[in-house]
């Protein structure tokens, strides 16, 4: 598999810093991060806890703002945007798959999947139709009326992916997508991501499991708030194989 270089980057991050304010002064979480991701890439972000990868994902997802540096998403400088504009980006350009799935417990799966469309002003019938299409895509069309707690973790995860896809985003961000899943289900989920990637959707996922990262085409490693490794997967496979895949 070859990565075709595509001229317009989806994500451009230049000289990005993020400090957290603590009682003893600012605590730097991200230091001098530079990263360019092109359309159609499948990137795994790795690193130990506290390396800043979750913070980085929050910034990528327009949920958090960098302390300094530039984050350009599809040619738009996110740091310059007001809250409403970042909300629109989250709702229309991005699909976020959360670590804990974050489905609304009292809503049917169909309503959960359709929720992002509410904030785009899509009429109810169309929302419903669209949500059913996506539930079918993740193989859960029979559960449209169920509540999230009636289905398994893997199924919940597929619902969360369907929700992330509902507004046809060009970029999907997934935070520890296989966190609590058994290896068989993890494999299924990763197949789903790969399939989406083949459809042309850019995918960035955070994981600390090397065998999960193998599904991505490119691996980026964070350590102490810096990117210490950035290479195509086939080059780094060996590295992880050498260090052992027991996690």
């Amino acid at each position: 598999m070859t990565i075709l270089p595509i001229p317009a980057p989806v994500i451009e991050i230049l000289g990005l810093y993020k400090d957290y304010q603590t009682p003893v002064g600012p605590f730097p979480v991200l230091k001098e991060v530079n990263l360019i991701i092109h359309a159609g890439e499948f990137v795994a972000i790795m690193g130990p806890s506290g390396s800043g990868k979750s913070t980085f994902m929050n910034i990528l997802g327009c949920l958090d703002r960098p302390t300094s540096g530039a984050y350009v998403l599809e040619g738009q400088d996110v740091a310059q945007m007001d809250k409403d504009a970042t909300a629109r980006l989250r709702g229309q350009a991005l699909g976020f798959v959360f670590q804990g799935f974050n489905l609304l417990p009292r809503m049917s799966l169909e309503d959960n999947v359709a929720l992002p469309l509410v904030y785009c002003g899509i009429p109810k019938e169309e929302r419903r139709r669209h949500a059913r299409t996506l539930l079918a895509k993740v193989g859960l069309e029979d559960y449209a009326a169920s509540l999230p707690n009636r289905i398994s973790g893997g199924q919940q995860h597929r619902v969360a992916i369907a929700r992330a896809l509902v507004n046809t985003p060009r970029l999907i961000l997934a935070d520890e997508p296989t966190g609590n899943l058994d290896s068989h289900t993890s494999e299924e989920i990763m197949q789903l991501f790969s399939a989406l990637n083949r459809e042309g959707i850019t995918i960035v996922l955070v994981t600390h499991e090397p065998d999960i990262a193998l599904h991505a085409e490119r691996q980026v490693r964070f350590l102490d708030g810096r990117i210490v490794h950035d290479a195509p997967t086939h080059a780094s496979t060996h590295h992880f194989a050498a260090s052992g895949t027991v996690c």
Binding site: K83, A87, F96, L115, Y119, N167
Partner: peptide, 13 residues
């Protein structure tokens, strides 16, 4: 509320 905001709800929503 956090989930709603993360998937595109604005403050005013």
């Amino acid at each position: 509320i956090g989930i709603r905001m993360a998937i595109g709800a604005r403050e005013r929503d």
